[in-house]
Design a binder for these strands. Structure first.
Ligand code: MN
Ligand code: MN
Ligand code: ZN
Ligand code: ZN
Lengths: 136, 136
DNA sequence: AAGTTCATGCAACTGAGTTGCAAAGTTATT
DNA sequence: AATAACTTTGCAACTCAGTTGCATGAACTT
């Protein structure tokens, strides 16, 4: 059995041709990508199918989404053990020059003390600035 | 001269009737509001004018925007001394029950150590959970 | 084989945000 | 006060990401 199939099955996602292909593409990226960007990686793409594929992946925590404020939500693979709990989260970085969105997997989201009677479910932390590539 | 006029002028914004009205409405909110929500606060609203008013306000740092991932950007008044620098920033909170977005003005955005050659311009930190109101 | 379930493809739609342009209003100049 | 220059507002049209309904097709179950 394919490695990608196992990865899908480990998240309870039925491996179809489409899903394997999307997983492969996501694995090739070193930055997070949006649905429109994913669409462009296909000759003849079916927006809806890709949309639903991403949704299935996200619901099953194979990928996570990042709202970086650019108007299109970005997606990136979770690591194999990720459960998308607050303790699993990392910081994201949007370069204001090249517009790429990076997963800073080594930088955990700092904990915050909320006011009384506010409870935490999730955190989206996006740092904006200039990436190392654009500084060269 | 009106207090609102002074507030506008202190940010180099010409005080017009529309702008005073929008500023007044923003001052009355205890949560951040979106353009569509602002629109609904008027009988007969001109979306474009409100849009441009918010843009002008934001460019001149009278208000700041929050992308809370709900699909519509929220806006809230800056405090009088705010320059929207990273050190001026505070955490925002989106309640997943009532969908309100709060400015947690007392909770500064924690500093993060970025990888080498990444420079910081801005941070958007949105905590999602249940607000105190929804816990009652 | 027939039935059931799930995935895909297509079309149509929603809703936030944005732009161009003309009309109205404001401010400066003569 | 009249004119010119500039700014704000109103309207219409548009873009684009995301989403839904429904029909078709594939895979799996009995
Ligand atoms: Mn990430
Ligand atoms: Mn705020
Ligand atoms: Zn960059
Ligand atoms: Zn709430």
């Amino acid at each position: 059995m394919k490695k990608s199939d196992e990865r899908l099955k480990s998240r309870n996602i039925k491996p179809t041709a489409m899903r394997e292909l999307v997983l492969k593409i996501l694995g090739e990226q070193d930055v997070a990508i949006s649905l429109p960007e994913l669409e462009q990686k296909f000759e003849k793409a079916e927006r809806t199918t890709l949309y639903r594929t991403l949704k299935t992946f996200e619901e099953n925590k194979l990928i996570h989404s990042i709202d970086d404020g650019t108007g299109s939500v970005k997606y990136a693979l979770c690591n194999e053990t990720c459960q998308c709990h607050p303790k699993d989260l990392h910081v994201h970085f949007l370069c204001s020059k090249c517009k790429q969105t990076y997963c800073l997997n080594d930088i955990p989201v700092p904990s915050v003390n909320l006011p009384t009677h506010f409870t935490l479910e999730n955190i989206n932390m996006v740092v904006k600035g200039i990436c190392s590539n654009c500084h060269k």
